[in-house]
Design a protein around this nucleic acid. Structure first.
Lengths: 343, 343
DNA sequence: CTGAAAGCGCTTACAG
DNA sequence: CTGAAAGCGCTTACAG
């Protein structure tokens, strides 16, 4: 076993209370004593047990992060930002992949509660909010990131302005002359996706489009490809598509290639998120960039504020996304789209 | 506050020892008593404090994972596998991104020690192994994944057979008729990269190549691109390149495109890892696939064995990589490569 | 400025 | 089969 506070106290000829005080900078300790004790701590290579102090102080300096899947680049990048900001503020991070399943959400929630985390960041989809009860029951602070649940009043959230993101995607495509649009959204259950679609629709209608275009749903690459194959083989196939995340967009581009269509010449594509994937595809993806790093920083700050009893200053933080134009979008070709296919 | 073991004991009219016993399945408790107590636990929604039990039992059921960067897809995918296997065995996961800096490695090591983790998985580069001293001093079990340190005897590791991976990359390119090869390796400090290069070289020489080709170094996409620009503008530019990870390969492909060269027509590219990125690039990347999921599972099992005192069965587990052929490699064009550029 | 003592919520011999 | 009691390594009023 390694040194405990008792060993240090004995060595220094003081009580453990005094050692504890110099450790935590509490109370008044004479400068000489303090320095003497610090020296001994150093020499004995003493490190206080976080477990013992957690048991008494009720603080673990640990946070939980619930995401659908840590191997999904968006959440991996978010996790990195969360980890860094947590580290800065002295908090460690438990990572929990839920696959958006309430069962896993609830089991992780119970686990995190048992572990005594000081707060948890929820970036995962939660079908039934009661899955979070183990946390809320014990009044462990919770903050949502990238998702919101209006049914959960009083729980702060950090999101990007998804509506505005949808608007900017639509305006970009409209400015390029596209009129025959389509949207591939995520599940209706995902609040952020709903907002993105709403923004896109409003902007399209505001531009005088008679109709808003086809709307289909997908989750990741595979489904994006499937829906792409379908959309692109319809007689009135769209000349531009808005995909509610980069993965879907990637699947869509794959579908286009398989059908011998060129992106953006035959169909423009806009994604959402701007993860590393967007810069790597061919063509590089025009996409609505979420400020992932700032989102991560902000949730942590909000959560730590709540955890430390300094009431969160705001309940809801909305960060602005920005359109990153790469090469998957282009002006509408002058020929009538679709003609080549023999309509 | 929520219920403690005392509340349950009082409610059940037994001692806390008895409650503890039924909780942990220890000792002999009469079936009726057990069931009665279980019922009360259920009713009171009692969950034992992991902190208190950690303080007495010296087990936290928590592991640490040191990686260079959780937002790097390879490590994100590995982390997912580690998390899942840990979860299965009852362990939670602290995630620690070190950016391969010894300073951060050491500070995380000290932190994990304070938190009392039962073991740590090291997938990060460590320049000076003494950065791990906080762990080793306290004899906290450590296992390496994807890297090895021969200087650290007695520490188990799980790696893929990097040498064999390098061989298979070379054989693939040789079989396609390529003779003018190049390699973009990671830093010399990275053991896995060294082995990959060694395998590649041996296979090339064994095939009768007079020389093994150019060797340059890079870390990620940016450097891969830079080195690509350089390599591809030399008079005797290679017709095929082996990149020691997918990120480098992606950067290389970008460079080729910028120079107006086609992959694979003008230059074949083989990567290493087979992360999600490899399937998303254009062309999709031929790459040596590491069995990421199995690696994650295996390290966790090895580590938990060590943590639970069941001596690790083996000190070193080597998993076989396998070549995934996609579209970034092709037979050597019949024309003399490079002629087009006016050599 | 410093110390004695209680207490955090468990587990674990040990005794019966 | 069950309980009393010690102990894990800290923090925190409280007293002096």
């Amino acid at each position: 076993m390694s040194a405990t506070i008792y060993d240090v106290a004995k060595e220094a000829g003081v009580s453990i209370a005094t050692v504890s005080h110099v450790l935590n900078g509490k109370g008044k300790i004479s400068r000489e004593r303090r320095e003497e004790i610090l020296r001994i701590i150093e020499r004995m290579n003493y490190q206080p047990s976080a477990i013992a102090s957690a048991l008494t102080s009720k603080k673990t300096f640990t946070l939980g992060l619930l995401v659908p899947d840590i191997s999904n680049p968006f959440f991996a990048e978010l996790a990195r930002a969360v980890e860094d900001e947590g580290q800065l503020l002295g908090y460690s991070l438990f990572i929990c992949s839920t696959d958006n399943q309430d069962r896993k959400v609830e089991s992780y929630a119970a686990l995190l509660r048992q572990k005594g985390v000081d707060g948890v960041i929820v970036g995962t989809g939660v079908g039934d909010l009661s899955a979070l009860r183990p946390l809320l029951d014990r009044t462990i602070p919770v903050v949502f990131v990238s998702r919101e649940y209006p049914e959960a009043p009083g729980i702060p959230s950090v999101v990007s302005d998804d509506y505005a993101g949808g608007v900017s995607a639509a305006r970009h495509l409209l400015a390029l002359g596209h009129r025959r649009l389509a949207v591939i959204a995520e599940s209706e259950a995902v609040s952020s996706s709903r907002e993105r679609v709403r923004g896109f629709r409003d902007a399209a209608l505001a531009a005088g489009l008679p109709s808003f275009g086809k709307l289909v749903r997908a989750g990741g690459i595979r489904e994006g490809r499937l829906q792409g194959l379908r959309l692109l083989q319809e007689p009135d196939r769209p000349t531009a598509v808005f995909c509610c995340n980069d993965l879907i967009a990637i699947g869509f581009i794959q579908a286009a290639k398989e059908l011998g269509l060129r992106v953006p010449a035959d169909c423009s594509v806009v994604g959402f998120d701007d993860t590393i994937l967007a810069s790597v595809t061919d063509p590089p993806l025009t996409t609505v960039a979420q400020p992932i790093e700032r989102m991560g920083q902000s949730v942590v700050r909000l959560l730590v504020q709540a955890a430390e009893g300094r009431g969160a200053e705001r309940e809801r933080l909305v960060l602005s996304p920005s359109l990153t134009v790469r090469a998957s979008t282009a002006p509408l070709a002058s020929r009538l789209p679709g003609l080549a296919e023999g309509e």
